[in-house]
Nucleic acid binder design. Structure first.
Length: 465
RNA sequence: GCUCCCUUCGUCUAGAGGCCUAGGACACGGCCCUCUCAAGGCUGUAACACCGGUUCGAAUCCGGUAGGGAGCGCCA
């Protein structure tokens, strides 16, 4: 049977990097094996699921490029099917109605806890066929009482659970609605999921699900429980520690392939390779190479990878995100070629596109003022003379490109017996207002002759005064 | 409390009993390159949680201890 994986988020919050990595591994595994990747929205918790969260998850996955081959399927649209399976289980005596009240269950739990036992349902309605008037029953699955359940997990190996540790879990609430663990089983079965790849917080749910699958006459799928991603401080990802929407990474100026590259290397590696294109990931990824231990999120490494990906990207790809970042800073630019040229000139000096935009403002507006410290350091009688000379020669230049500009700057400095920097820095100060920019020839070339000269003249007027 | 899972540099990882004087990457420091900032190159600091055992030999196998995590809901 061909490989089918699924990503099954519940829309009770945003899609964060933990979820994204799970989705990535599912997607990679399916791609690698020519299988199909299914998206399922687990929205049975009517209270907490929201339309906005669903949309947000969909947007996040689209941005990341993790396109589902099938779905999204919604569990809320499958209630009839769940009902059908519950009735089947009931008819076969594999499930039963339990008329315990919440109060009774609470009392039971309290007693067990008091005795130092693991709280679990004691099966008191398991063999009863009567009803209790006035109580809407729940339906419980008849879990085997003895023996063991063996989960053959691809990442954790063989994990053994005693059935005695498991209780009869509720599969339908008293209002008739199905519960999570049951829906998962029915869905994975109906959708012919061959590989369940999910966070290892679900490892403890697996024996119950496996038992239900067996009761339904199905062979369990292959399980792969991925280690968690922790916050930078090594603690669980929380709202205060890095648990942000993946869309926030987009807005902060990260490339999706960089985020994915970062995530794929959490719990997985391929020799000494650090940088992967999406294609390389698909080719190299294997779920059996995944680690067992949790990993901490490291923002510096993500930033480094983002820069590496920006430097390797097709320059055209940087145009749209750069335009968007500039817009956030109040700059509108519809000249694609210009944006591409700026990105090319700036990408080795920015970790993110947001930073690139911030560093590139001077390409769109003259400096409001000049870095005072730098002026004191670089602006002298000699440099002013060189600036004037350079301006005059640049004005007469036959053509306008980095090579021609470089020649002029070089000659003027040499003629004055100065190092290139003695002229480059004043020039940079004049056109950028600061001391940081791409090489001065490239900067002037990008700025254009007219604007460059205008800025130099303006600066000279100021500094001569 | 009970069950299950995890443990190599600060962080991500390589490592399948001798190839380990433990390799790579991020970060950090130094040097080089250099018109600035970067990028790049070279280089340095830094780890097998602990205790026992098996073995000629253990980061690797076994047992225990400690620490961390998850689950034990009419949440997912």
């Amino acid at each position: 049977m061909s490989v089918r994986t699924r990503f099954a988020p519940s829309p009770t919050g945003f899609l964060h990097i933990g979820g994204l990595r799970t989705a990535l591994f599912c997607w990679l595994y399916a791609r690698r094996h020519g299988g199909r990747f299914v998206l399922r929205i687990e929205d049975t918790d009517l209270e907490r699921s929201t339309e906005a969260a669903i949309q947000q998850i969909l947007d996040g996955m689209e941005w990341a490029g993790l396109v589902a081959d099938e779905g999204p399927f919604y569990q809320t649209r499958r209630f009839d099917r769940y009902r059908e399976v519950i009735d089947e289980l009931l008819a076969e005596g594999k499930a039963y109605r339990c008329y315990c009240t919440k109060e009774e269950l609470d009392a039971l739990r309290a007693e067990q806890l008091a005795r130092g036992e693991k709280p679990r349902y004691d099966g008191r309605w398991r063999d009863r066929t009567d009803a209790r008037p006035g109580v809407q029953p729940v339906v419980r699955f008849k879990n085997p009482t003895g023996g063991e359940v063996v989960v053959e997990d691809v990442v954790h190996g063989r994990v053994v659970f005693q059935n005695a540790e498991l209780d009869d879990l509720i599969i339908a609430r008293s209002d008739g609605s199905p519960t999570y663990n049951f829906c998962v089983v029915v869905d994975d079965m109906d959708m012919n999921v061959t590989h369940v790849i999910r966070g290892d917080d679900h490892l403890n749910n697996t024996p119950r699900q496996q038992n239900m699958l067996v009761a339904l006459g199905r062979k369990p799928p292959v399980y792969a429980h991925l280690p968690m991603i922790l916050g930078a401080d090594g603690a669980k990802l929380s709202k205060r520690h890095g648990a942000v929407s993946v869309l926030q990474y987009r807005d902060e100026g990260y490339l999706p392939e960089a985020l994915l590259n970062y995530l794929v290397r959490l719990g997985w590696s391929h020799g000494d390779q650090e940088i992967f294109s999406i294609e390389e990931m698909v080719r190299a990824f294997d779920i059996t190479d995944v680690n067992k231990s949790a990993s901490a999120f490291n923002a510096e490494k993500l930033a480094w990878l983002n820069q590496q990906h920006m430097m390797r990207a097709e320059p055209r790809r940087l145009v749209e995100p750069l335009r968007w970042q500039l817009q956030q800073l109040g700059i509108a630019c519809d000249d694609d070629a210009h944006l591409e040229a700026i990105a090319l000139a700036q990408r080795e000096r920015a970790k993110t596109l947001k930073e690139m935009a911030a560093n590139s403002l001077f390409f769109f507006q003259p400096p409001a003022d000049y870095d005072e410290k730098a002026v004191r350091k670089h602006i002298t009688v000699e440099s002013i003379a060189m600036l004037a000379e350079a301006a005059a020669r640049l004005d007469r230049l036959d053509g306008w490109d980095a090579a021609l500009i470089h020649a002029v700057v070089n000659e003027v400095a040499t003629a004055a017996g100065a190092a290139l920097g003695k002229l480059a820095q004043p020039l940079r100060l004049a056109v950028c207002g600061g001391t940081v920019s791409p090489p001065i020839d490239a900067t002037l070339a990008l700025l254009g002759r007219e604007e460059s000269l205008r800025r130099i003249e303006r600066a000279l007027a100021r500094w001569r005064a």
